[in-house]
Simulated scan of single mutants.
Amino acid sequence: MRITLRQLQIFEAVASSGSTTAASEQLALSQSATSAALNELENLLSATLFDRVGRKLIINDNGRALLGHAKQMLSMARTIEGQFNGEQGVSRDLIIGASTTIGTYILPALLARYRSRYGEVIPRITIANTADVATAVANFDVEIGFIEGPCHVRGLRIEPWIKDELIVVAAPEHEPGSRKSRQKATPSTLAKAKWLLRESGSGTREAVEDALLPHLHYITEGGVFSSSEAIKHACMAGLGLACLSRLVVADLLAQGRLVEVGTTLPRMSRNLYMIYSAGKTLSKPLTEFRNFCRVWQ
């Protein structure tokens, strides 16, 4: 086998930066050495990995087919180095992907408690919707992910993590039903309302549809937003109803700027999941972090 880890490292750097010049700066190599290594890799594989567009190198189908394998091999090499270099050589960085609610409302407290128990750690967190987090884990862009809905990406280990309560909220002046008579909103009443929803691909969107559609049969969109923060403020402004995690709206409920809508629906909740690659050998710090997350509550 003539392919080297160095060639794969250079290939990965070119794929992420779009040029051999930027990759050479990233890896502290000369531009000529970077170009030579990339050319040698392409010759060994008898395949062109990038399309040359002006000065840019755009990864093509061959390159995309190789990229996941390259990242997996480089990740395993780093893990081996860490395991055999002793504790001083093991990175304390945690490269995490998290969907919005988890990254904003759960991970900060979890990481603070983890740091207080295990010492200094530097979290590097990418926040995106569930589909994008799952893809990032599968592509080895992040080491571990936390998502709010079912995962549809192959090659991942998926662990049910914690339960998250979902509630219906409204601006006080737009609450359906009658608070004075304690009349709860029925499915027929809720079906007539306009709903503020997350975008397609969001775990929250999928969980809300799974919770509401069996009872309402259809949901009328009052607006589509890329974050739960935007939804709760749009709801506060009276643009429609929202079904969100209690964690997300706790502050506005306490301030009286949103109210929880009493309904005749069954109690709603969803599973949050922890995901990591089935093909990744977890380093000691990452295994330690995963095990902590399993029992932290």
Rank of each mutant, 00 (worst) to 15 (best):
T4H: 08
R6Q: 15
Q7P: 06
Q7D: 03
E12A: 15
V14N: 03
G18M: 04
G18D: 03
T21A: 12
T21D: 05
A22P: 05
A22F: 05
A23D: 06
E25Y: 08
S30R: 02
N43C: 00
S46M: 04
A47H: 04
R55A: 11
K56G: 01
L57H: 13
N62F: 02
L66V: 06
L66G: 11
L67D: 13
H69W: 11
K71F: 03
S75W: 15
A77P: 01
R78M: 06
I80R: 10
I80G: 00
Q83Y: 02
G86E: 08
L94T: 11
A98M: 06
T100F: 10
T101E: 15
L107N: 06
L107F: 10
L110F: 09
L111E: 05
R113T: 02
R117F: 00
G119E: 04
I125Y: 07
I125F: 06
N129V: 08
A131D: 14
V133D: 06
T135G: 08
D141A: 15
D141T: 13
H152D: 14
G155N: 09
E159H: 14
E159G: 02
D164S: 15
D164G: 10
E165V: 08
L166H: 09
L166D: 04
E173M: 03
E173A: 11
E173C: 01
S178V: 12
R179T: 14
R182W: 03
K184I: 01
K184S: 13
K184V: 09
T186M: 01
P187C: 05
T189V: 11
A191P: 02
A193P: 03
W195Q: 09
E199G: 11
S200E: 13
E206D: 14
A207M: 04
V208S: 07
L212N: 05
Y218P: 05
T220M: 13
V224S: 13
S227H: 09
I231T: 03
H233T: 10
L239M: 12
G240P: 05
L244Q: 15
L247C: 10
V248C: 09
L252C: 04
L252P: 03
R257G: 00
V259T: 14
T264H: 08
T264A: 07
M274G: 01
M274D: 03
I275K: 05
Y276T: 10
T281K: 07
L286R: 07
T287Q: 13
V295M: 04
